[in-house]
Structures are given as structure tokens and as C-alpha cells.
Write a protein that binds this DNA or RNA. Sequence first.
DNA 1: ATAAAATATAACCATAAGGTTATATGAAAT
DNA 2: ATTTCATATAACCTTATGGTTATATTTTAT
Lengths: 102, 102
Amino acid sequence: MSDIYRAISDPIRRQILNMLAERELPQLEIVKSFTISQPAIKKHLAILLEEKLVLERREGKYCFYRLNTPVFEVEYQRLQNEIGRILDNKLNRLKQYLEEES
Amino acid sequence: MSDIYRAISDPIRRQILNMLAERELPQLEIVKSFTISQPAIKKHLAILLEEKLVLERREGKYCFYRLNTPVFEVEYQRLQNEIGRILDNKLNRLKQYLEEES
DNA sequence: ATAAAATATAACCATAAGGTTATATGAAAT
DNA sequence: ATTTCATATAACCTTATGGTTATATTTTAT
């Protein structure tokens, strides 16, 4: 069911997702835009793949990565429901309190 | 600057945040609502405190926890900006592509 | 055929996470 | 004063994270 929380918990992975939102990229390009090693980037990509937020496509010696937009959309929606509800609860509580006051 | 990503990456912590959204609770109540041990819950609370999403208040032998609503609000806003932008980018790209088509 | 480029994998390391049990501490009740 | 209740802390364990360097492997270019 794709743990989006795990996927986005690391700033490098968030940055990668941002890059892939603009366009499909070969691993090379992603590696070049960070200072950490190629295997380190590979591991981040592996996690994004595991969580199905990213798709890969092999073309000759290049491996292209792209955002899995449908999955990302529904998972982000899930997150907003779960986390947003926390604040909604809080606001409803406050509203209720203010109503009881009057 | 409060790493909300770290805070919400664990389902138990998300559940705790939800409970605290409803009302302030003594640690006891939180512990009772899970099957894991008291020290385990304590560690989750320590992380939520570290990330400033939760506040604690001592009253006699009880330790009360409550949501740090202002911080939570701004941090969640941040998250929505950062993550939401990923989909915005994607949508803008699509829009642009469709416009170029015509 | 060889060299070079892009990616993959292995082995390693340090630290963080998430849990446990056992025990200490501090406050409240008997 | 002593027990009891709520919390804190210590010591330990296992697995996950996030990185490294070195070395395949695969594909393309010379």
C-alpha cells in the first residue's frame, strides 16, 4: 500500500521526487545533481521504487526514472486525510469550546 | 525547525497525534490505548517532543501531553507546500504539454 | 577487440529506530 | 512508614537508514 511517509522522510528523496515531477530523468542526471555517491542515490531510488512512487524504464545503458503520478496522488491524498484530520479535530474542539462558552 | 517528516513517519506517532488532537492526555492514557510497553510509548513521545509537535506538563505524578497546535500547523503547511508542489509541477507539465499539442 | 560510460552489487561502517525487560525515582494513598 | 501508582531510565537486542569504497556487469563507442 505504499508507505509515502517512509518515502518522503528523507530530504534527498523529496528532492528527487521534485526533479522527477518536472520530467523523466536518467539516473545519471539525478546522481550529478547531488554530492553523494551513485550507490547512495541508487538506494534512495530503490526505496522510492519499493514504495511505488517512482517507475523505472531501461533504455540501453540508461535507466530512466519517472514519477508514478497516480500512486503519488492517492497516497498524498491519504496523507492529507490522516494528518489534516489532526488539525480538524483540534479546530472542532476549539469551536465546540467557544460554543460552550457562550 | 521541527522535522515533521520524522515525527509522522511512524503510525503509532500519528495515532498519538490524533489522540492529542482531541484532548490533553496523561501518559497513562496513551500507554493504555496501545499494546506496546510504556518505555516504547515514552520514546515515541520523546521524538514528538524533540520535534516540538507536542508539549508536556507535569501535574503531581501525572505527565500530561498535548498537541503543540501552532507548530503543527506551520509544519504541516510547510509539508503541503513541499509535497504539493511535486504534483503541481506534474500538473503544470501536463497542461503545458496539452497546450503544445494544440 | 578494447575502452569507456552507466548502472548494479557487494561488503563494510556508523547511527537511528523501535522494541524489550528490569529497575529506579517520585508522588499519593493507606 | 510503606505500599502503590505513574513515570523515567538503563541496558540490551534487532533491523533499518544512509553513507562509503571497490568491483562487477552491461552497453555503447572507438
